[in-house]
Computed example of a mutant assay.
Amino acid sequence: MSDASTGSTTGGAGSASEEGVRLQKVLANRGVASRRVAEQMIVEGRVRVNGLVVTELGRRIHPETDLVDVDGTAIQLDESKRYVILNKPTGVVSSMSDDRGRPDLRRYTKDWDERLYNVGRLDADTSGLLVLTNDGDLAHVLAHPSFGVTKVYIAKVEGQVLPQTIQRLLKGVELEDGRIAADKARLLDASRGESLVELTLHSGKNRIVRRMMAEVGHPVVELVRRQFGPLHLGTLPVGKARELTTVERGALLTLSRRDGDAPVE
């Protein structure tokens, strides 16, 4: 009997055949688990290929084209794809070249042979988390505002931010290109005539945090992006870049596969 829930092998991409590589070998090679543990994962029904649960140890796949996830987390099989996180300093433009001669992102990609590109942008006067990759499909999902990927910013602003101002940010403010509301907003600190505000947004509009805070009477003094989707800046120093960990790559690819066909209205 052939059934999708038990790993049907009747045709389609990734169907079992004498071609391809055994699934447990692929999982072991990608550092998911040892071959024996990977086999146990398959038998327990924890592994899916192209969205279908596989429980047969003889299953072969094509790492170049098939999509695999374990316990709902995507596994990177295409070793040609590179994913890098950068803590962009202020004064650097979000571009691989700048016709005005300003510092750009090329200096942070020298350690990788692949041609990496930035996912979205941060203003030159904004620091923080920027993703660099050669994965165009993932970059599209992360950067396009219709997919609703959230970003978390910490803004140092002028003046004492009051609770009613936070509520106004949550309810929405009218800007020249339409009404915008923060997904989350909270006051972190206030002293010496300045306040620290944390804003979570899924909007991709240009200079949105600066414009929102100016609209409520608190111009931004400093701005840093601390989070982008499932990625956190953590303790990465300003001006440093590193490859994503296996866990981070899994979270990012899972987000891409889940949202790639379902844009947010």
Score class of each variant (00 low, 15 high):
61 I>A: 02
72 G>C: 12
95 S>E: 09
67 L>Y: 01
57 L>D: 09
66 D>I: 08
65 T>H: 09
101 G>Y: 03
77 L>T: 09
80 S>N: 14
68 V>C: 08
62 H>I: 06
71 D>N: 14
96 M>F: 12
69 D>P: 10
88 K>R: 11
99 D>Q: 04
102 R>N: 07
93 V>E: 03
56 E>H: 11
95 S>N: 02
103 P>S: 05
73 T>A: 05
99 D>M: 03
93 V>G: 07
68 V>P: 03
65 T>S: 15
86 L>S: 05
75 I>Q: 03
82 R>Q: 13
75 I>H: 01
61 I>Q: 10
59 R>S: 10
97 S>G: 10
100 R>D: 06
58 G>Y: 03
64 E>H: 10
89 P>C: 09
74 A>E: 13
56 E>T: 15
74 A>Y: 02
60 R>Y: 02
85 I>P: 05
57 L>S: 13
99 D>S: 13
70 V>N: 10
64 E>F: 03
58 G>C: 06
85 I>Q: 06
97 S>T: 15
90 T>L: 07
79 E>P: 06
101 G>K: 00
103 P>T: 06
66 D>C: 12
81 K>G: 00
85 I>M: 14
69 D>N: 15
100 R>V: 08
74 A>M: 08
62 H>W: 10
77 L>H: 09
76 Q>L: 13
61 I>W: 04
100 R>E: 01
65 T>M: 12
84 V>E: 06
98 D>V: 01
76 Q>K: 13
85 I>L: 15
58 G>D: 11
98 D>A: 03
88 K>P: 01
77 L>D: 01
88 K>Y: 00
82 R>E: 14
91 G>E: 15
94 S>K: 08
70 V>K: 00
92 V>K: 05
71 D>L: 13
92 V>W: 10
76 Q>D: 08
64 E>N: 02
62 H>S: 13
87 N>E: 09
93 V>Q: 08
77 L>S: 01
87 N>D: 12
92 V>R: 10
59 R>H: 14
57 L>N: 10
79 E>S: 14
69 D>G: 10
100 R>N: 09
96 M>G: 02
74 A>W: 00
87 N>R: 08
87 N>W: 03
63 P>F: 12
90 T>H: 13
77 L>N: 01
75 I>C: 01
92 V>Q: 06
66 D>V: 12
90 T>E: 13
98 D>Q: 08
93 V>L: 04
74 A>L: 01
96 M>L: 13
100 R>G: 08
61 I>G: 03
96 M>Y: 08
87 N>Y: 07
92 V>S: 08
70 V>Q: 04
73 T>W: 07
65 T>W: 09
103 P>E: 01
103 P>I: 02
66 D>S: 04
82 R>H: 12
99 D>L: 06
90 T>N: 12
93 V>P: 04
96 M>T: 04
93 V>I: 07
69 D>A: 04
66 D>E: 07
91 G>D: 14
80 S>F: 10
102 R>H: 11
76 Q>T: 05
58 G>W: 03
62 H>M: 04
60 R>D: 01
